[in-house]
Every structure is written in structure tokens, then in C-alpha cells.
Amino acid sequence: MSDAVEEVTRAQLRHGLRIATLLVAAAVVFGLGLSSLLRHLDAYEPSLAQLVAFAALGAVLGGEAALLARGRSWDRLRGPAIAVVLAVSALSYVTLPDGRTSTGVDWIFGAANWVGLVVLLDRPLRAAALFLLAHDLTALLHLVLLDEPSRGDLARFATGSVSVIGFPLCLAVVATVLRSLSAAAAAARREAEQVRVAEAVAAESHRRRQQRFAELSTTTIPLLEGLADGSLRPEDPLVQRRCAIEAARMRRLFAETDTVANPLLHELRHCIDVADRKGVVVELDARGQWPEPPVAVRRDLTEAVLIVLATAASRARVTAVGSADVLSVSVVADCGEVNVPSPVTPGVRVEALNNGNTVWMEARWQPIRQRTS
């Protein structure tokens, strides 16, 4: 399937070639053709048929000029236009004096071929070749059926056919080659664009990996190093709590790259999954609709949840309530006293209440105030 780059390249080359072909055809028809027609006008019987044929070819060229000005092609009018060219070619030969085929009097022999090429330039090469053969065959039938051709007449016709078919056919071949080159050039440009995109994606992926490593290096890596060197004991409840928190942070970090409809709820579910694996029963309730928070805001909103869930003993409830003006994420769980995290994003506030073994913690974000502050 052609993309925008390929289509633009083809359109530019096709438009320039159509203009050049139209100029050549107009020079042949209105220059050589008209001069020959007027010089031998008295020889035609009747001369009106030749004038009608000339006017028809001029109308086809005028139609091509109008289409070029509007940036359009012949489309469904292509067939009728070729039919008109062949019809007026036959009309011209009907009123051509005997023995004048492929001579200076036969002005349409070297004019209609260019007009037909103008119409068929953007079609496959075989279409132009078939038209040129049909046009040449019209002249040959007139010569054979209505005249008594000598060897000299046939030789003159064959010599004239070389230029009548050869020159326009060469231009049609050039048009075909240019179309192939434009497709190849567009394909090369598309491949280069794909390479640039792949390089940009690879660079962005590398940057994100470095960013994740930096984010984990301050908390997760020291924990792993402590477990590795024996300075931290796995059976220590505080160490277990730290491990649960870091596991939730890592799952949240990996979830941040997922493409989902609601990133905040998606990341909350990953935080909850760590508590589920410990046997804690967690309920998640989401109400309302809210604009998608930036990644930094989502981290502040979920940090309170994952800290409380890491300490929960048996049950917890997570609630996300939002609108266009405010977004709140709260958690209630049966856990002991926990440290209230300090948000790093302006516009996010965290509150906590303790009642015995029950802790309620809420992180609230007001996006409108954040954007206008």
C-alpha cells in the first residue's frame, strides 16, 4: 500500500511529465498539423471534415490542460477521449485525397498519435502501444483499401510509421520508467524513515531502561544487596515489608509502559496483586471519570496504596474517585502504623488517619489547579 511519501513523489513526477507531453502534443498539433492543414485545405473533400477533426483534437488537448490545472486525471473520461481521437482520425482519412496517405497532406497521421499519448500517458505501456497500433492501422487500411499503393507508397508509409509510433512510444517508455523510479525512490525513502523510527524507538527504550534502573537503584538495589551479603535477614518482618513494597513498586514501574485505557487503575491493580499473593483480600472500587494523570502524579497517587497494602494483615479496600477537577485514591487496611509518603509532584496531597489497627490513607490530586498555578 502506497504511503503519503510515495504518493507525493509519484504525483510530482507524473505532473511534470504530463505538462511536458502536453506541450509537445500542442506544438505538433497547433504547429505542424495546423500549418499542413491550412496549406492543403483546398485538397480535402469536404474540408469541413478536416476542420472538425482538428477541432476535436484541440478539444482533447484543452481537456488535458483543464485537468492539469485542477490536479485531476481523465479517469472515466479516458475511454471516450481515445474513442474521439480514433474516430476523428478515421473521419480525416475518409476525406483525404487518394494517394496522399502519410504525406504532407495527411496532417493527422503525425498529430493524433501525440494527442492519444497525452490521454494514455499515466496508463500502462501496453495501453499506449495498442492505441498507436490502432492509429497506424487506420492509416494502413485507408492506404490499402481506398488507394492502389505502389511499393514506393508502402515504403513511405513504413518510414512514416517509424516516427509516428516510435517517438510517442519512446516517451511512453520514459513515463513507465519514471513511474518505476518514483516507486523505487519512495520505497527507499520509506525504508529510510522506518530505519530512523526504529533508531528513535531503540534510543527511547534505552533511555527508559536507564531511567528505570536509576529509579530502582535508590531503594530496590540496596535491599537486594543487603539480602545478598547477609546484612538483612529474610525472616525479619521489616525486611519482608520492604520487599513487599519494592515488589509493588517494580510491578507498578513495569505497568507504566503498558498502553491501556485507564493507566491509573491498571497500575493500582498491579500494586494490589502483590497483596493478593500474600493472602490479603483487597477490594478495588472506581467511581467517576478523570483526565489521565502524568506518570509522576500516578506514582504519588499509588505510593500511599502500595505502602499500606504491603503492611495489611488480612483485608484492604482501595477506592479511586475522580472528576475533571479532582482525583482521589484512598486505601483502608488492617495494618499497624505506617509512614506517610511525601509526594514529589506539586498539586498532590497525602493524608492519613490511624484508628487502632486500621489505617486510612488518601492521596489527592487537583489537575486544574496544577495547570493554572
Rank of each mutant, 00 (worst) to 15 (best):
A83Y: 05
L121T: 00
Y93W: 13
R126H: 11
R78F: 05
V162D: 12
L86F: 00
V94H: 14
S89W: 01
G63Q: 03
E64R: 07
A155K: 10
R126G: 09
V162R: 10
W107T: 00
V115F: 05
H135Y: 11
R156S: 11
A139M: 05
V164D: 04
D153M: 04
I108S: 01
L68C: 11
S163A: 15
N113A: 14
V144L: 14
R126Y: 14
V144H: 05
A112F: 06
V60P: 02
A69D: 10
R72T: 11
L125M: 09
A59C: 06
L130S: 13
L169E: 09
S150G: 15
D75G: 14
G160F: 06
V105H: 07
L145F: 12
D153H: 02
L57T: 04
L141W: 12
A65Q: 05
T95V: 13
V144W: 07
R156F: 08
F157R: 02
G152C: 10
F131Y: 09
V115A: 05
V84A: 03
A59M: 09
L77V: 13
R76A: 15
C170D: 14
L146Q: 06
T103F: 00
P80S: 06
V88T: 05
S73R: 10
P149W: 00
L120W: 02
R123D: 14
V60R: 01
H135P: 00
R72K: 12
G63L: 01
R123S: 13
Y93C: 04
A134H: 05
R156H: 11
V85Q: 02
V88R: 04
L57H: 06
V119P: 00
L57C: 03
G58I: 03
L125S: 04
S92V: 01
L61D: 03
S89E: 06
W107N: 01
R100E: 13
G58L: 01
R72W: 09
R72N: 13
V164I: 15
V162E: 14
W114Q: 04
L125Q: 03
L77C: 12
T101V: 14
C170Y: 15
R126A: 12
H142K: 12
A112S: 13
A128M: 07
G166N: 08
W74F: 10
R156V: 08
R151S: 15
G104W: 15
D122K: 03
A155T: 12
G116T: 07
A128D: 03
Y93I: 04
A155I: 09
W114Y: 12
G99P: 01
N113H: 13
R100T: 09
D75P: 08
S150P: 06
P168Y: 05
L133A: 14
A112V: 05
E64F: 03
L67H: 07
L130H: 09
V94E: 08
F131C: 03
L133K: 04
F131D: 01
F109M: 02
L137Y: 11
L121F: 05
V118W: 06
A66T: 15
L154D: 07
R72Y: 11
A65D: 07
L143I: 01
L125R: 10
A112L: 08
R100C: 10
R126W: 14
A155S: 13
A65Y: 02
A59P: 04
L77H: 09
L169T: 12
S163C: 15
P97M: 06
D98T: 12
T138W: 11
P168H: 08
P168K: 07
V85F: 00
L130K: 13
